[in-house]
Amino acid sequence: MRNNSLAIFFILLLTSLVFIFFNQSRAVLLLKQSVNEILKPIEIAFAKPKSWLSFWQSAFFNIKNIKESNNRLILENLNLNEKLAKLSQLEEENSLLREKLNLSQKSINTSLARVIGRDFQNNRSFLIDKGTNDGINAGMTVISKGETIVGRVIDASANTAKVQTILDAQSRIAAIAEKSKISGLVRGLGSDAIFDLIAKDKNPEAGELIISSGTDGIWPRGFVIGKIKEAKSKDNQVFNTADIELSADPRDFDSVFVILNSQ
């Protein structure tokens, strides 16, 4: 048996040596190619489990590195989130400053103010962080981005001012439909506003822009209020009305512009 094993060993070793020393010969190359072809399907079948095993082997032995890398990435993520928040703030600030510049170029002198308090019950008023020390006085118009009327300063103290929004039931703005030139009055209803006192024979179109006409001598002319949603006409009423969609929802903004003078 032992001699048998020895004989097998030497025969197989000799065969291997032949393959090695004649590895560039045609016969050996052909044999290698044939073996490769036979093994290819098995190789393909084993490729995925091999890759899976390799992944978990690496993961197991690199747990410490993975944990450190994870902690580092968490910290990096926190830092990036902080930078992102700052970037968003800067973007907002940039946008407001551009708006202010735009207004200045139209000879509309404004003061940028932040909303610091709201009347959450009915959104009829809010507080801003500028007051008489900053040149703010009662009666000044307050607008938001896009030259949209938001309200009017009704009370100003040294460093803050109270703004009455156009939703307030006491708010009235003489307005005109931009295309059809139909005039009327934008009146606050508390939670909404309507375009009232429209002549009986006139009907503004849905989607039409409503802008301040300036004919009341209180509100400046040419500022956007909203859009017509639906015109209404009732036989038992003297005037037509229209529901409007305000361009600036008093609940949505954090900063406003107070018009110090308009020409």
Binding site: S16, F19, V28, V35, N36
Partner: peptide, 19 residues
């Protein structure tokens, strides 16, 4: 021999090694 057919070393060496 079978593993040597698809490895980067010279064909036959793996067989000799295993032997």
């Amino acid at each position: 021999i079978l593993t040597g057919a698809s490895s980067f070393s010279i064909f036959g060496i793996s067989g000799a090694v295993f032997l």
